[in-house]
């Protein structure tokens, strides 16, 4: 049996913090600490060396983007630490700051997503193991605001679906099961998207997420 994933939670709302602990423990995670402010988060990561942290963006003292600042610091200090940003709003600016250099082990989800427990747990696991999990809302906003609407409009409807799921950080297998098609078909769609965008094919999931996001954001 694999080692359980170790998590630190930083969330200032007690109700949500307790709820998350309950949920994660129930699903077999080890919650090594649950804190309510950024400095405590830094200390907890230093001490417990978790696989992944769940960080609320708005935390004391100013309730703006302390969580994000702390997360960016932590990422620089602890390579391989997965970071799942957790917020009630999606701001694409935050997403692009977080993904500035690498998409490996980064997630950004709306808090609502915990309602679909299995999907949330799956996203957290993905981030913990170096993958990417972007909220569909982030992807929608990126697609909507993208100046590459010409390139996007040449995609077929199916390819657009695949693009969105790919940008969320899903693997080919996950995309295949979500769209109820074979993995081979997904691969074909992905190849076609990269050809249409004139991007080099990437092997790993998080590299191709970054390639797609950079393309949409440029």
């Amino acid at each position: 049996m694999t080692r359980p994933v170790r998590v630190v939670i930083a969330e200032d709302s007690a109700i949500l913090r307790d709820g998350l602990v309950q949920l994660l423990v129930d699903r077999g995670f080890v919650v090594s600490d649950a804190v309510s402010e950024p400095d405590a988060l830094r200390r907890a990561v230093e001490r417990d060396c978790p696989d992944v942290v769940i960080v609320d963006i708005r935390m004391p003292p100013t309730f703006t983007d302390e969580g994000l600042r702390a997360a960016i610091d932590l990422r620089r200090l602890h390579t391989g630490l997965g970071i799942l940003m957790f917020s009630q709003y999606i701001e694409t600016r935050y997403a692009s700051e977080l993904l500035a250099d690498d998409a490996a082990g980064v997630g950004y989800l709306l808090k609502d997503r915990v309602a679909d427990v299995s999907e949330f747990v799956e996203a957290l696991t993905r981030v913990a193991s170096g993958g990417t999990a972007l909220d569909p809302e982030v992807v929608t906003q990126l697609l909507g605001a993208s100046r590459r609407s010409d390139s996007i409009s040449v995609l077929s409807a199916r390819e657009k679906e695949v693009l969105s799921l790919m940008a969320e950080g899903r693997s080919n297998a996950a995309i295949a099961s979500e769209l109820v098609i074979s993995e081979g078909t997904v691969e074909k769609h992905v190849a076609s998207i990269f050809t249409k965008f004139d991007l080099p094919q990437s092997q790993s999931d998080h590299r191709r997420v970054l390639a797609v996001l950079r393309f949409l954001d440029s």
């Binding site: 709302s13 949500l16 708005r58």
Partner: peptide
């Protein structure tokens, strides 16, 4: 906004989470 964010919104997220767990 702060009151809604910290109060009702958080309450509802926690509520949805518990119901999600129960459902599964």
């Amino acid at each position: 906004e702060r009151d809604l964010h910290d109060g009702t919104q958080a309450q509802l997220v926690a509520l949805a989470m518990r119901l999600g767990m129960a459902k599964e």
